[in-house]
């Protein structure tokens, strides 16, 4: 009964107009970029301004659309209303180190060390970039193509971690700030002033982080789409990821199963048939485990790569109209 209510498509995502943040994640080469690009293309047909962001240093978006993207949002050729951005986390860290080295301030060195020891500083950099970009231009919805290393969850839990870290730093600064100012007062003539600024900046950052945190936990505003393949390890990772997302109170109600094989009935390929049997076994398990609560979209393995605007547009149709394998 519940099955009929949860269509095996991503139409529900397209229909939910309040959504602002959509994360597409899954571990290890399962087809995240293809799915996120396809979803972005479909969304662009129904919204005014869609942004597609990738934090993967391997530049998948540029490869997928055959167009160079960078730190600034750029319009995608051939698809109106869609812009794309590729953030390189390591590049941002380099910049920040250079900036910080420029001010030879005893206090700022300590703050630097502190800042770099916060867990997930890479994610922090991506986060900072995103916040900067997003605050400047108005986008209706932002699709994140997450990094394949599975650090997505660290990224998503980052607001909470950073909030706690900043709370601690504020507390410490309140207690030790005056003392340290006195100690370093001799060396850092203008240091006192700069530190005051820094703490004020941290406070305002904390407010922003808090706001983002609240938005991520609101199911009307944020959702997560798990992409997987019908194999044991991918399934195991998906289950683990879903449990972890629930513990962070991040909404997840869509699963995309990719790279499904549909060998022709007359096929004599031993590997294809064996793989098909194994995949079907896992697809059954997926249905059994997730059917009542998740939309399960099944995408086929195509004979050629999904690269280039036209192929992505064609592939994206399968997100709304379920693929029916041709039976021979």
């Amino acid at each position: 009964m519940e099955d009929e209510e949860l269509a095996p498509t991503l139409q529900n995502i397209l229909d939910q107009r309040s959504l602002r943040w959509i994360f597409v994640g899954g571990k290890g080469g399962v087809g995240k970029t293809t799915t996120s690009c396809s979803l972005a293309v479909q969304l662009a047909q129904r919204r005014n301004n869609v942004l597609l962001i990738s934090t993967d240093p391997a530049h998948n978006l540029s490869d997928a659309f055959g167009q160079q993207f960078g730190k600034e949002a750029r319009k995608v050729d051939g698809i109106p209303n869609l812009s794309a951005m590729e953030i390189d986390p390591s590049g941002s860290i380099q910049e920040m180190i250079e900036q910080a080295n420029a001010q030879n301030n005893g206090m700022s060195n300590i703050m630097q060390d502190l800042a770099f020891s916060i867990p997930g500083v890479d994610e922090a950099m991506s986060f900072a970039e995103v916040m900067k970009q997003v605050k400047s231009t108005d986008f209706d919805v932002i699709v994140f193509d997450t990094a394949p290393t599975g650090h997505t969850l660290r990224f998503l839990s980052f607001p909470t971690v950073l909030e706690k870290a900043l709370a601690k730093v504020s507390e410490l600064s309140g207690r030790f700030g005056p003392m340290l100012n006195g100690l370093l007062g001799a060396q850092a003539g203008g240091g006192g002033g700069a530190d005051g600024d820094m703490f004020a900046k941290l406070e305002s950052m904390r407010a922003t982080i808090n706001e983002v945190n609240t938005q991520f936990k609101d199911p009307d505003l944020t959702t997560f789409i798990c992409v997987c393949i019908p194999e044991f390890l991918s399934l195991y990772e998906t289950e683990r990821m879903i449990q972890e997302l629930s513990s962070y109170h991040i909404d997840v109600h869509c699963i995309v199963v990719n790279q499904l094989l549909y060998p022709a009935k007359s096929s004599t390929c031993a590997q294809c048939n064996a793989r098909y049997k194994m995949q079907q076994k896992y697809v059954e398990q997926i249905q059994d485990l997730y059917e009542g609560d998740f939309h399960i979209v099944k995408l086929p393995q195509l004979t050629d790569e999904v690269r280039g605007t036209e192929k992505i547009k064609a592939f994206s149709q399968m997100l709304i109209k379920p693929y029916v394998p041709t039976s021979e």
């Binding site: 195991y236 449990q243 398990q285 059994d288 485990l289």
Partner: peptide
């Protein structure tokens, strides 16, 4: 067996947690 009966295994896993 988590390989053969993943759904059942996962449900038991959730219960244990």
């Amino acid at each position: 067996s988590s390989q053969d009966e993943f759904a059942k295994w996962a449900k038991l896993n959730r219960k244990v947690d």
